[in-house]
Design a binder for these strands. Structure first.
Lengths: 124, 124
DNA sequence: TTAACTGTATTAAATGTGTTGATACAGTTA
DNA sequence: TAACTGTATCAACACATTTAATACAGTTAA
C-alpha cells in the first residue's frame, strides 16, 4: 500500500503523509477505515517505528487521521481537516497560480485544467 | 528590499529565492535590472555571503537571474525561466487544486480566484 | 595602473533536522 | 494472560544548512 522513493529528497515522514492524503483523495482509503499500525507499517517499509509515528502524529494534527491508543489509527472525515491546513493549501494554490500567469499561462487554460481535475473526481 | 523572517522554518536561501521571484512577478524588479551584490546583500541582511551565493546560484539555475563575474547579477527575462521550473510549478498547481476540490471547493470558485489574480496582474 | 568593486570556489566548523535503535508504559482485544 | 494497539523518551548517527575565513579572477573608475 505505502511505498518509499529513495530518490525523493523529502523526509520519509513527509512522503508517507503525502501518500496517505492521496489515498484519501482518490478513495483508496475510506473515512474511518483502519490504517496499518505503526509497527506493521514500519516493518513493511523497513524503517523505524518512530518515523511512522511522526507521520501519523502530524497527520493527526492536520486532521487527516485520528488515533485511539490500544485500538489503532483511522482515516478521518474530510470535514475534520484543520482550517490551518486548508489555509495552507489555498496559499499554495494562489502562489502557483500567480506564477503560472506571470509565465504566460492564461486564466482560461488554468480553469480548463481545474475542470478536468473535477471530472477526474466525479469518475470515482 | 529583502527581509528575513526568523519564524519561517525554511532555509534562508529559499526565503531569499521566494522573495526575488515575488519581486519579479510584481514588477518591483524589472528585466535586466541589477540586483544587490552578494556581499552587499549579505551585509544588509547580516548573514553569510555564502548563503546569498547559494540563493543566487540556484536562481540562476532556474533561469530567474543571470550573473556576470566582475559585473554583477541581474534579473532575467521571464522567457528564460527553465522548463524544469515551470513543470514544477504546474505540479504544485495540480496538487493544490485537486486537494481543494477534495475539500469541497468548486471548480467555479477556484476559477474565480484565478480570474481575480489575473486582474491583479493587469493593474501593473 | 591601482583600488575597490564584482562573481565564484573551497575548506572547516557549528548547528539543526531527520532517522535509527532501544526501551518503556498504558489501553484494547481475543 | 498474551498479543496486539498508540505514545513517550533518550542517545547516537547522518545529513543539510549556515557560518567563517580565504582565495582567485574579471570589471570599473580614479
Amino acid at each position: 500500500m505505502f511505498e518509499l522513493n529513495s530518490r525523493d529528497p523529502r523526509p520519509i515522514y513527509e512522503q508517507i503523509m503525502e501518500q496517505l492524503r492521496k489515498y484519501l483523495m482518490t478513495g483508496v482509503i475510506s473515512e474511518n477505515e483502519k490504517l496499518p499500525s505503526v509497527r506493521e507499517l514500519s516493518q513493511s517499509l523497513t524503517i523505524n517505528p518512530n518515523t511512522i509515528q511522526r507521520a501519523y502524529r502530524e497527520l493527526e494534527n492536520q486532521g487527516y487521521i485520528y488515533s485511539i491508543p490500544g485500538k489503532g489509527s483511522f482515516a478521518a472525515s474530510r470535514a475534520d481537516i484543520s482550517d490551518q491546513r486548508k489555509a495552507k493549501i489555498l496559499e499554495e494554490f494562489e502562489t502557483s497560480s500567480r506564477e503560472l500567469l506571470f509565465l504566460g499561462e492564461t486564466a482560461e487554460s488554468l480553469c480548463k485544467k481545474i475542470q478536468s481535475f473535477e471530472k477526474d473526481r466525479k469518475k470515482m
